[in-house]
Amino acid sequence: MGTFLENLVTGAALGSIYALISIGMTMVYGLLKILHVAHAGVYVFGALLGLLAFRLTGSILFAFPAAVLGCALMGYLLYRFMYRRVQDEKPLIPLIVGIGMFTAMGDAYRLAAGPYSISFEHGLAQTGIVLGTFHISFNQVLVIGSAAALLVLVWLMVNKTKTGLAWRASAQDREVAMGIGVNSNYMFGLNFMFGSALAGIAGVLVGLYYGAVNANMGEVWAYKVFVVMVLGGLGNVTGTVIAAYLLGLAETFIISSWGYFLPRDAIAFICMILVLILMPNGVMGKRKQV
């Protein structure tokens, strides 16, 4: 029973991280139909900025705003100077541009921060809740709690604000939205900033969760986000969040029961390819955009 609960918590924490990273990419796909691979580079940037702010001020409370501001800016710049130029080309071109940018970013981080993990220890990591043999660490509470709060915020943004309405309009039909006075380029920029800020927070959370930040920490998740997106029904934010938690839990329980019969990424990609072939609209279906 203890093991089951621990796996549930571990899986939920993993799912929370997947969700926070994937939302930005899903939102971009919903609006621009672009696979924004460089998003994972933004996420690593957030982790590094958070670490830098933490090292400079000595408090993790400064890590989050630093990551949010830095990543929002970076997201905007990526859109303004890179994707905007290629957004109307064949979808392959922005994809390759994104991969190239992500590769370059990863290497730039390595040159700046060194090729090894850097400690990101906030002192509370070893504390936690103990009930008999069942342990929850402070880190897990932190990750799951912050993700839940942020997801509520995202839901409010998308469903209850005018910007959210405009976003949904643009996502459904760009031309019509522009026709009724929604400035799409403005929406796109905002979209990149918002998604990137979330990725930045995810970066800091992951850094705290593992107590380490690494220049190549985006590599696995850059591509795994595709899996989450595809499972969640491409551009569907709610679906993506559900898919993220499902994937986190599934991975954890599969590994716990059967071990690694293949590396994590290979398992995830097999799922993705099967879904793409068999259910081109994703597991969650695609009844409606959020």
Partner: peptide, 20 residues
């Protein structure tokens, strides 16, 4: 005996088993 891939970061699900 449990296997894990090089570069793995999350050992929690295996360690929960090992605790058992």
């Amino acid at each position: 005996e449990y296997n894990y891939p090089l570069g793995e970061k999350d050992f929690r699900s295996l360690l929960s088993n090992i605790k058992n």
